[in-house]
Design a protein around this nucleic acid. Structure first.
Ligand SMILES: [Mn+2]
Ligand SMILES: [Mn+2]
Ligand SMILES: [Zn+2]
Ligand SMILES: [Zn+2]
Lengths: 152, 152
DNA sequence: TGGCAAATTGCAAATAATTTGCAAATCTAT
DNA sequence: ATAGATTTGCAAATTATTTGCAATTTGCCA
């Protein structure tokens, strides 16, 4: 079993949660695919495993609570899920307004600029995490001269 | 009429859209209330005006397309809407994991760090806008020593 | 290696959030 | 004021997610 999965398995146990077929399967899909997936997509990836969509939702909800997975809402449609910081590299997203493609960026202007400390000092708010997504035109759409009315 | 509304009214006209009761009302609520509101909340604020919830959704959808309003998805529940950059100051959010309170911050590490230019140069992706939300504990929740298992 | 109690799952039905068809009402430009 | 195009209200339809409950799985320990 993957090191990350093993780690999560122990964490679940320590919190009194079971290591089940459904949960293991969902986590495997998430560690395998490198991009944020919708509940439906995760479920589809489980085709043969005979796991109900409800269980996918339940697993995701639990993982979100335990900070193992984070919900990402980009552009249109249902939210997506991906492994949270700590189970993969801290990163942000580049979302193309035209084709919807999602790329990752690992540069983080929040940490780099020490924004959390600055905010804590100035407002008393203790920042624990953040979400940063950048919208625009990906290289191929830009080349093609595509324009868009999309929000961002 | 508010300067911003007048401006938007002209914009709509130029694009072949009508300036209607429903649209004006929704915009008024958004310019009046300084925080991101749910479709339902906007509708409720229109109590007496006899405007259907469907029309609120339709207005929001149009405004989003025209970049007049942006959708903000913070924490649990339905998405919220607020005036987009250009119709109010560029800003980001501090969301308390415990009480759900939302504060604004106007410091922007993205612009400050010239991240858009850097990304464009390195990846070819042309950044046009971004969303940054910070999660953690607001001052009062921190004082009260509240803890949380919430994701962020 | 069972065997039991507690936790979890599948399934179907319930909710929540948002969208849509269409006739009536509203709006913009004569 | 009128005509034509757009928008609205309302009810019904969709889409996304949650929930109750009996059956099944899992963790623990004799
Ligand atoms: Mn990602
Ligand atoms: Mn805001
Ligand atoms: Zn970051
Ligand atoms: Zn910014």
């Amino acid at each position: 079993m993957h090191k990350t999965l093993q780690h999560i398995r122990v964490l679940l146990g320590a919190q009194g949660h079971f290591w089940t077929q459904a949960r293991a399967a969902v986590l495997t899909v998430l560690t395998t695919h490198p991009r944020p997936l919708r509940a439906e997509e995760i479920h589809r990836a489980l085709q043969n495993r005979h796991i109900n969509l409800s269980s996918v939702y339940r697993a995701l909800r639990l993982f979100e609570t335990l900070n193992i997975v984070r919900r990402v809402t980009l552009g249109k449609g249902a939210p997506r899920y991906e492994l949270a910081d700590g189970y993969r590299d801290h990163h942000h997203h580049l979302v193309c307004d035209t084709c919807g493609r999602i790329e990752d960026v690992t540069t983080c202007p929040v940490e780099a600029g020490r924004l959390p400390q600055q905010i804590q000092r100035r407002t008393g708010f203790a920042v624990r995490s953040h979400v940063l997504d950048l919208f625009g035109l990906c290289r191929s759409c830009r080349r093609r001269g595509v324009s868009t009315t999309e929000s961002g």
